[in-house]
Amino acid sequence: MAQPRADAPSKIILAGSDLSRVVDRIAHQILEKTSGATGTVLLGIPTRGVPLAHRLAARIHAFEGVEVPVGSLDITLYRDDLRLQATRALGKTELPAGGIEGLRVILVDDVLFSGRSVRAALDALKDLGRPSSVQLAVLVDRGHRQLPIRADYVGKNIPTAHSESVKVALTEVDGADEVRLIGGLQ
């Protein structure tokens, strides 16, 4: 797929406190839809899904005093596009001490796009155990699905053109919080 050039024009969609508010909203939705997040595990998909999962857990704890276990699920070895680019370094896969067996797993990612990453995550999850159910939380849904996949929790829907891309920055990884839409502008 065409990537916008590095010097393409870009526009900030969310920054700083906006992004925090969006995370708060997802945390509230999770509490609502999961009856107080009991029996729930958050698994972030590296790279940016992992700090997002930790933020969600922290917010849930702040709101309701509930400790939601957090882990990470690397999907690299399950991707269907491995051979389309240079070899990727692996991210970490770390399940919480209580595992995932019989629990509700919420996969956390920054951007939902084609749905292929989520499919890879579902494949990876299946090799790790048998959760009672799997849900998906994303900071941004930019559309253009190629698979029958939808998110249970969406921070912000950003309609995009195919030629555009969405770049999420998080303080833990990138030094600042912002969501930027790149390319496609005049």
């Binding site: 070895l77 680019q85 070899t87 990727r88």
Partner: peptide, 8 residues
């Protein structure tokens, strides 16, 4: 093997 063969 992964690093030699996993990519393009």
């Amino acid at each position: 093997l992964y690093l030699l063969l996993g990519g393009k």
